[in-house]
Design a protein around this nucleic acid. Structure first.
Lengths: 341, 341
DNA sequence: CTGAAAGCGCTAACAA
DNA sequence: TTGTTAGCGCTTTCAG
């Protein structure tokens, strides 16, 4: 079967105008739903002509004229990462109603790639940008001249709207929860960001120990890269300790899941022998046995909220002040944490 | 800190022309890298002016003129589904090089939503469409007049390029693998599609039984919806059988994972008491204990290949014939299958 | 309430 | 090799 698409010359607003016996301004008016300024009869005639000719509005032409594209660029490290794909979903769903499309760019923690997407956003005159910056600086973002919202709570982005999760609160509550379950010797697998960020969890850990008068034991805290191998290594280190922890908090679910797997492979029963709690609440946490207890970040909601801030900025209804919106993490109990035996 | 973005009037090609003392055509030529037809000196002068003025090419204007947008619409049921986000990644990575941006639309198995995205693609004069159609028909797609590639191997889309996985082969090999591991009594948790598709796996199951002279036992095959609850129910039914299977094949990993969890909750040891194999190879399969053995679909590669076909279609270098590309599934052994004891 | 006219910023013949 | 010219299809004053 041969493949071919109709390449008929599409009718323009002028064709419609002729067919309806009016001027193109009038057609344009009904197209824009300018209700008040077009007589019902005229409107009907135009509508009929539109349908008859199969006319389809050319958004490109109107973009050129109005300098509005209804396009938003979303830049995250990787859309295939379930965390970001959920944020993306929230952003898209919220932006869809008012008619925006979103282009997603995978920055891959790479300066050149992030910049390339920024460039596309500028060249294509996008109306907005939502970005989780890894290698991009505040100045660069401001210089685009395009309304921008930062995904994640980060320092060094003054003057830009920001929405993310309250990691400090999340980590603190995770630790407090373990404490309430009777745990006193709590390990901490700390993901090390490539960038400077992410100190919130470590600060929460320190603060937690202090508040509960727990002796800080350096051997209980292990810093690893933010991936499966890291979680594996972190757990191995903790298991090798003469005086093992009874519970472990990991900076995110990837680490926690890998840690749990590692503990199980070592013959431990989770949560009987060891409790584990993570952070983020990504898709796989419900799939394991036991399910992973975690401090859920509101990923979808983050995307929605980012979209709202961005819309206000684009439409100019926002206050001049940059806003910072930290959504709280919420405990989701699944089964990887038990009272200390 | 107040938020404000420079809203300087951007310089146009004319400003550059003036500054460089040439005509705008010349500027346009160097902008398009029309190397042969611009004297090096002139080119340099223009380049300098561009940099000096901070000129940035206006893609919208050139879209209007050239009728090319370098935009592609990707429509899948849900980008937050790890399966589709991987396909998306492949598509994006491949389309990025030649300068295309991709807008992702979440169809949600909803006719209206799918149609809305198609409409956006038309109004914005997108150059291409990649879609996994759930409620959209061939005619509608053809009528867009936009080069389109179907994601997934499906009937009823004659005349359109198509790329997906060979589910029949995948299912057949999964079953054969179980057979080779000594299993003879093999359960089948069959995901029921909303649409008519997806019979390939059931056909493979039937064919497999026949080839190996295994008596078809209706009680071993249970049809369920394609979600976690389905997998759970499927496994419960199989476990309730007087004569239980020793191995189970599930239509996809979501079902398989839920089934495995259910079996474990029932006190079975996987794979010692029961072997389980899935299909797709989604992200969480590596996170469970044991890891899920599965027939991997080449998701990323599907996206890449779809992009390639689409590019050929857009650039008109493709044959007229529609192409159908079925990528083979590959066995990934993780630990949920063991020889029959 | 409707029409005429002037572009938005760029590309692409066609001349020179 | 470069410039001139005529739009791409739409929106938006400004008149009437």
């Amino acid at each position: 079967m041969s493949s071919h698409f109709k390449t008929t010359a599409r009718p323009t607003i002028i064709d419609v105008a002729e067919a309806a016996g009016v001027s193109k301004s009038t057609v344009s008016r009904v197209l824009q739903g300018d209700a008040a300024s077009v007589k019902p009869d005229t409107r009907r005639a135009v509508t009929r002509a539109i349908r008859k000719l199969g006319y389809e509005h050319n958004a490109i032409a109107s973009m050129l004229r109005t300098a509005r594209t209804f396009m938003v660029m979303l830049i995250t490290p990787d859309i295939a990462n379930p965390f970001w794909s959920e944020v993306a979903r929230g952003l898209q769903d919220t932006l869809e109603r008012p008619g925006y499309s979103v282009v997603v760019g995978n920055g891959d923690q790479d300066s050149e790639r992030e910049n390339a997407f920024l460039k596309t956003a500028r060249r294509n005159r996008f109306d907005g940008i939502a970005i989780n910056p890894t290698k991009i600086h505040r100045r660069t973002l401001l210089a685009t001249g395009i309304p921008t919202v930062i995904l994640g709570i980060r320092d060094g982005f003054a003057g830009l709207d920001m929405v993310g999760s309250d990691s400090f609160q999340g980590a603190f509550e995770a630790l407090t929860y373990l404490y309430q379950m009777g745990h006193r010797r709590i390990g901490f697998i700390d993901g090390r960001y490539v960038t400077e960020q992410g100190r919130a969890r470590a600060q929460a850990y320190a603060e937690f120990l202090k508040q509960h008068n727990l002796e800080p034991d350096p051997s209980l805290k292990v810093e690893v890269p933010f991936d499966r191998a890291g979680g594996q290594r972190g757990m191995r280190v903790l298991l090798s300790l003469a005086h093992r922890p009874t519970a472990v908090f990991a900076s995110n679910d990837i680490l926690a899941l890998a840690a749990m797997q590692t503990a199980q492979e070592a013959g431990l029963n989770v949560p009987r022998d060891l409790s584990i709690i993570g952070m983020d609440d990504i898709y796989p946490t419900a799939m394991t046995m036991p399910g992973l207890t975690t401090m859920a970040k509101q990923k979808y909601e983050t995307g929605c909220q980012a979209a709202r801030l961005l819309l206000e900025r684009i439409e100019g209804t926002a206050l001049r002040e940059a806003r910072r919106c930290a959504l709280p993490c919420q405990l989701v109990e699944r089964g990887s944490v038990a009272p200390r035996s």
